[in-house]
Amino acid sequence: MNEYLINAILPLLVGVGTWFAARRKNLAEVTSNELDNATKAVKYYREMLDDMALRYKEVVKELDDLKDHMKRSDEQLQHMMQENRELVDELKKYKQLNGKTETTA
């Protein structure tokens, strides 16, 4: 009878001891995996933010270049408008010298 009890209780005790040791190991592995996942997520978002910062700098630089181009174009337009006015005035003077009168509409 003792033999039957030992054969029944011993594997049960070994199983409980193994489960307890494995449970601690599994908890440690789960915690380690969670930390690894969090580290990977932080790295991913950091890279994404760095990429967005670079894109933002590029867009700002391009916008500044476009502003400079618009400013130069506006200056050129103002210069051309002034030159056009001067040419119209010269044309009016030329017409007056040739005896033509200016008609207004």
Rank of each mutant, 00 (worst) to 15 (best):
F20R: 07
A8M: 06
R23G: 08
L54I: 13
E34T: 02
Y56P: 02
E29I: 01
R55L: 11
L27W: 00
Y4I: 13
A22I: 02
Y4C: 08
G17E: 08
V14E: 14
R55F: 11
F20C: 06
D51T: 14
A21P: 04
K57S: 11
F20E: 07
L5T: 01
L54T: 14
P11A: 07
D36S: 07
L12M: 06
E34N: 03
K57N: 11
T18I: 14
A28Q: 11
Y44Q: 04
R23S: 13
V42I: 10
S32Y: 06
N7S: 10
L13T: 13
L49K: 11
A41M: 03
L5R: 08
T31P: 00
W19N: 03
F20Q: 03
L12C: 08
I6Y: 10
N26D: 10
K25F: 01
R23L: 07
T18P: 02
A53Y: 06
L35T: 11
E34F: 01
V14N: 08
T18V: 15
A21E: 10
E58T: 08
V30T: 05
L13D: 09
E3H: 11
M52A: 15
Y4L: 14
T18L: 15
E47N: 14
L10E: 15
A53W: 02
A28D: 11
Y56E: 15
K40Q: 08
M52G: 00
A28Y: 02
T39E: 13
L10G: 01
A38D: 04
L5Y: 07
N26A: 13
A38M: 08
G17M: 10
E34D: 06
E47H: 06
T18D: 09
L49Y: 15
N7G: 09
E29D: 12
Y44N: 05
L54G: 11
N7C: 00
R55E: 14
I9P: 00
V14L: 12
A28S: 07
Y56V: 05
Y45D: 10
G15R: 09
T31E: 10
A21L: 13
V42L: 04
N33Q: 05
E3Q: 15
L12I: 04
L12G: 06
V30I: 04
I6K: 09
F20L: 03
P11E: 06
A21G: 06
T31F: 04
L12D: 09
A22E: 04
E58K: 10
E47I: 03
D51R: 08
V14W: 01
A41T: 05
L49T: 14
L35G: 01
I6N: 10
Y56Q: 12
L10H: 04
A28L: 03
A38I: 12
L13Y: 08
R24Q: 12
S32E: 15
L13V: 14
R23K: 14
R46L: 11
L27N: 08
M52C: 05
V14H: 06
D50Y: 02
R23N: 15
G17F: 12
L49D: 14
E29G: 01
L5I: 09
G17H: 07
E29W: 03
L27Y: 02
M48S: 03
N37F: 05
M48G: 01
L54W: 09
L27H: 02
T31K: 04
Y44D: 09
